[in-house]
Design a binder for these strands. Structure first.
Length: 210
DNA sequence: GCGCCGATTGGCT
DNA sequence: GCCAATCGGCGCC
């Protein structure tokens, strides 16, 4: 009898590190959704780091905790999903340690599998825009509040390393759509990727070891 | 291609 | 009231 191939996902230890490290290393990894029994999958091309209670742009700034952001204060590897502007879901993975309120926001992905599912969920927009933003990514992958608070490895949406790790170039820019600490360079994306949420306008490129 | 603006919900001042 | 880790449509250059 053949050995069953177990789904390989990231260990909790991966998330037990500073959010900016996790954010950079998530680039090039694969996000796999089986929500609703339908597989859809993409390569993560854009992320943002939120550092925790010291970060004015973090929902957990100054330990501000409420019913909505409780998952952000959970253990590393926890999904934190919240509603933005009353209509878009945004997905984060908690980093570092319990209570720090540090996380990485998934901002964009390159669709690679389940394109028809994504197109249906996204209402037939051009493929380039299926996952080119945090709200779009959630809609394409079927992510909503149902994922909030789940441990990633036990959930219907997991992240795994790519089949083979290629050398990638990461560009760092300020974060998007925030007003506080808006100049902190904590947004990361694959250099030159056409699948990101907005065009590059400057930013520093650097090579990441394989 | 770029910038402005409305939609819509919930938590906070 | 006011604001927000957004999106898509519209007007204008």
């Amino acid at each position: 009898m053949k050995a069953v191939r177990r789904a390989v996902t990231l260990p909790v230890a991966f998330f037990k590190r500073p959010a900016e490290v996790v954010a950079a290393e998530l680039l090039g990894m694969v996000i796999v959704s089986s929500v609703g029994g339908e597989i859809s999958e993409g390569i993560i091309v854009e992320t943002e780091a939120y550092l925790g209670y010291d970060d004015p742009a973090s929902h957990g700034y100054l330990h501000r905790r409420n019913a909505r952001n409780a998952a952000l204060f959970g253990p590393p590897g926890t999904w934190y999903v919240y509603l933005s502007y009353g209509m878009h879901w945004c997905s984060n993975l908690v980093c570092q340690e319990i209570g720090l309120a540090s996380a990485v926001l998934l901002r964009a992905a390159q669709p690679v599998k389940g394109l028809s599912v994504m197109r249906r969920r996204r209402g037939g927009v051009p493929d380039r825009q299926l996952c080119s933003g945090p709200g779009k990514l959630c809609q394409a992958l079927g992510i909503d509040r149902g994922l909030d608070g789940a441990q990633m490895a036990d959930s219907q949406v997991i992240v795994r390393p790519p089949q083979r790790r290629e050398e990638i170039a990461v560009t760092v820019t300020p974060r998007v759509g925030i007003t506080k600490a808006a100049d902190w360079p904590l947004r990361f994306h694959l250099a030159g990727s056409p699948w990101v949420s907005r065009k590059e306008k400057g930013g520093r490129s650097s090579d990441l070891p394989p």
